[in-house]
Amino acid sequence: MQLLAKLLKALNSDDSPWQLAFGVMLGMIMGLTPFLGLHSIIILFIVLFLRVNLSTFLLAYALFSGLTLMLNPMMASIGESLLTSANLTSMWTSLYNSTFGQLTQFYHTLTLGSLLFSLILAPFILIISKILVVQYRVRFMQWVNKLKLVQFLKSSRIYQIYQTLGE
C-alpha cells in the first residue's frame, strides 16, 4: 500500500521524467549490489544531494533487492571470472594495494560482479524508465486517477503525509 502510494505520488508529481528515471536506475544499482560498501555510500550521496526522485529510488531498490535471489549466483560468477583472470591479475594487484581499492571491496566476487552487471544495465534502465514515465503521464495518468482504488489511496492518511512531505 505504502509503495503504491509512493509510486503514484511520484508519477503524478511535477518531477521531471529524468529525475524519476535516475531514481529507478540508482535504486537498481543499490538493490543489486551488496548493501555495505563504498559504492552504496556514493549512490546514497548522489540520491540525497542531487534531485533524484526518492520514491522511485526506494521502489527500485526494494524491487531489485528481491531479484538478487535469482541473480546473485550469476553476478558472483561474473566477478569470479574477472578476479581470477590471469590477464587482469596485475591490475587487481595494484588496485588491491591502494587504499581506494581496499575501500571499494572490488576483490569480493559478488560486489565486483553485481556492480559491473548493474552498471552495464544502468543506461538501459535509465532510458526505458524515462520512456515509461513519459508514456504513463501522456496515456494513462488521467485514466488511472479515475480508478476507485487510486481515489481511495489518495484519500488515505499515508498519501496525505507523502503529499505534505513533497511540498
Binding site: N72, P73, A76, S77, E80, W92, T93, Y107, T109
Partner: peptide, 12 residues
C-alpha cells in the same frame, strides 16, 4: 554458499 554470497579473493 560462495556461489550465492560471493567470496573474497586476495592479491597479497
Amino acid at each position: 554458499e560462495e556461489a550465492y554470497n560471493g567470496r573474497w579473493v586476495a592479491f597479497d
